[in-house]
Simulated scan of single mutants.
Amino acid sequence: MTNSAGKLTARNKIAGGNRMELLLFRLNGRQLYGINVFKVKEIIPCPRLTNLPHHTPEVRGVAHVRDGTISVVDLGMAIRQPAMQKPETHFVIVTEYNRRTQGFLVREVDRIVNIDWEEVHPPPSGSGKDSFLTAITQLDNQLIEIIDVEKIIASVDPFAQTVSSEILTDEIKQIAPQFHILLVDDSTVARHQVEKNLSETGVKFTSLTNGRQALEFLQNMAAEGKKVNDEFLMIISDIEMPEMDGYTLTKHIKQDPKLTNLTVLLHSSLSGIFNESMVKKVGANYFLAKYDADELAKVVIHEIKAAAGLKRG
């Protein structure tokens, strides 16, 4: 077995078992923070940074890494902490989110841990809408705060995509309101972006925040005698979510005779061959890497046309 094939197999076992690998690091104090290892390309000593004019203060500069140039974001500043002093003495976590590569400046990297998603929980309700946490967990009696990187990227380098007008035909606009989509995503920023694009297509949607909540919602609906496949056109689910990830949610859906016909699109900032393998393993119908509004709309429209008996383009 090659080294890359071995890593892929190991990752399949982790994700398929409702587990994640979390990279732990510190910023200004002793608090431990975490992000999913699957999004980390490498960890390097902070390289020489070149200042960018007219950019947000959180971006400490750009650096030449491998064969390209990346922006380096002071992760402490991004979550409303003081700027880290002497960045040249710290580390940069090079990541790939939403089809973009960026670096995050951190004071020190601690370790990688393997955690069950059931041990990962939404942040406390009192943390407020401005919180940059997407989840929390505990390890060795210490609180670990998992950062909503998508929210940070959106605050530092905002992007707002709309569905192209040529995709939204009059025919689709007329029939779309008949259909209902279940959306599952724990990131407020990501969820609102999908909601915005679904609204543009005209479909109705119900939004939930994690896989366990979604599975219980669907199972309760089926227990009431409703045909879930008639109630929902499809489900669009994130992969990384507290308590139950999108892979495990999909596996439960496809193994339940009352839910198995529900079309599932896994929509994640994770990307690459690893996800292609996992999509096949758990039985999802589609996988899309975040974020392209037109790609998402095309899948939704494809399913609308199929359900309405229209010719699919």
Rank of each mutant, 00 (worst) to 15 (best):
R48M: 15
R48T: 15
N51M: 15
L52G: 10
H54T: 14
T56N: 05
P57K: 12
P57M: 07
P57V: 13
V59F: 05
V59Y: 03
R60S: 08
R60I: 15
G61D: 06
V62C: 07
A63D: 03
H64Y: 11
V65S: 02
R66Y: 08
D67M: 09
S71I: 07
V72I: 14
D74I: 09
D74A: 08
G76R: 04
G76L: 04
M77C: 09
A78Y: 04
A83F: 12
A83T: 13
A83Q: 12
A83V: 15
M84T: 09
T89D: 09
T89A: 04
T89S: 07
H90K: 10
H90E: 07
V92Y: 00
V92C: 03
I93F: 04
T95A: 04
T95H: 01
E96W: 06
Y97S: 06
Y97H: 10
Y97K: 02
N98I: 09
R100I: 14
T101C: 06
Q102V: 11
G103V: 04
L105K: 02
V109M: 02
D110T: 15
R111T: 13
I112T: 08
I112Q: 00
I112N: 00
V113N: 01
V113Q: 04
I115T: 07
D116I: 14
W117H: 10
W117Y: 13
E119R: 12
E119M: 12
V120P: 05
V120K: 00
P122K: 02
P122R: 02
P122F: 03
S125R: 13
G126D: 06
S127T: 14
S127P: 14
S127I: 13
G128L: 06
D130I: 10
T137Y: 01
T137Q: 02
Q138K: 14
D140M: 06
N141P: 12
L143E: 11
I144T: 05
E145F: 05
I146D: 00
D148H: 09
D148W: 07
E150N: 11
K151N: 09
D157P: 07
D157T: 12
F159I: 14
F159A: 05
Q161D: 10
T162P: 11
S164A: 13
S164H: 12
S164Y: 04
S164R: 09
E166L: 07
E166N: 13
T169C: 06
T169L: 05
I172R: 02
I172S: 01
K173T: 11
I175K: 02
I175Q: 00
P177F: 03
P177A: 00
P177D: 02
Q178I: 13
Q178E: 14
F179Y: 15
F179A: 03
H180R: 13
